[in-house]
Write a protein that binds this DNA or RNA. Structure first.
Lengths: 205, 205
DNA sequence: GCGTCATTCAAACGTTTGTTTTATACACGC
DNA sequence: GCGTGTATAAAACAAACGTTTGAATGACGC
């Protein structure tokens, strides 16, 4: 409910009603409403970390790694079959930061971002910590986040429901191919498979 | 105040106090709180449209148009010298849509988006309304929006303050160059009367 | 001067909010 | 059985919210 309606709009009465608990329970167990929110946030990115860290094979060519990373990220953001409140809660925390944001950044966002930067570094032969690589990574993240950030607007601009389950892998293909096209000139020899390296790995349902 | 604290958290009493007006004025002039919000939203994107529509020269080469569009968009989002509440308000409306979102989409977002799609169409020779062009446009928007969406996180990931005034043009350069790199293969020559219609081989399967 | 209208103001209204209180039910050691 | 500590329940609490009321103010035409 915090994810869906925001901290302020989610009332303890509704939360307790949905949980089948008494209103006084939140004060009894968490001190106050914000204590409950912090607890929710904690289990949120515990869950998030456990789910995502797997899935990007370290020995595959970097093109495939990029496709796998984008796919994992988009599934985490959009897959209707997994709890949507996880990414929604983090989105909210970014747009409207509470004192709890720092913890989310260090424990959940940075490791994932560094992983992506590593893949781009491997693709281009540049240093993972370089400004250029990190800005490219930001561009990749931006292309993914917009789908979670304003799906309603995108549905209207594209004329389709982006959030539908089948579309996710298509989106991941499109994003990673676009990124690879953009990096074409910078790509170094070994893994060079003319953009096809990333294909065919999709876990289509 | 709606932009800074959200519709719900901004109270009528605070707004009226800051405006030097009486509390009953909002009921008298706007009907209720939401009427006031809609009025604010209206002047917001009136202002927004007036400011942005200028500046993208229609007769320049499409590469320059793209750079101008991105620059204008990023300045609108980030320039600390112009009122920040404008883009913040729209961001909020996207993340947490109210019944007023429809109006914002049609009157403010869509014209701007179509303008970008037109530029990409001119760059690649594809139809402005095609799915491919519109998805490329979404990618451009995504790369820009992320800077307004979660500046705090980006500062931490990049190790610099992205919002500083001097950086905006650098960012615009980086984004438009990255996009042009990604469209390289699709670009048609500067002699721009080349064949109309769908350019043979689609990238999409 | 006077009535009329639009506007402003302080006060009050009825809800809803997060939180606290008070009472009750249950489990366990002795 | 009994006291003790823990968990749940319903009710009450004060504060804050959006909104309404009714009186006061001022300008204007006649």
């Amino acid at each position: 409910m915090f994810a869906e309606r925001g901290y302020r709009d989610a009332t303890v009465r509704e939360i307790c009603a949905a949980a089948g608990a008494n209103i006084a329970a939140v004060s009894y167990y968490f001190g106050d409403k914000f204590g409950l929110y912090r607890a929710v946030l904690r289990v949120a990115h515990d869950e998030s970390r456990r789910r995502h860290m797997s899935g990007v094979p370290g020995d595959a060519p970097p093109e495939a790694q990029l496709r796998a990373w984008v796919g994992g990220f988009l599934r985490k953001l959009l897959d209707p079959e997994r709890p949507q409140w996880l990414p929604r809660l983090m989105m909210r925390e970014m747009v409207e930061p509470t004192p709890a944001l720092d913890e989310v950044i260090e424990e959940s966002i940075r490791p994932q971002f560094d992983q992506l930067a590593g893949i781009i570094a491997a693709l281009t032969g540049r240093r993972r910590a370089s400004r250029w690589v990190r800005e490219e990574a930001v561009a990749v993240v931006g292309q993914c986040l917009i789908f979670r950030h304003c799906p309603v607007v995108l549905d209207r601009m594209l004329g389709v429901k982006v959030l539908s389950a089948g579309r996710i892998e298509e989106l991941a293909d499109a994003v990673s191919e676009r990124v690879l096209r953009g990096l074409e000139k910078e790509r170094r020899g070994p893994g060079r498979v003319a953009g096809r390296g990333a294909r065919g790995r999709g876990v289509r349902p």
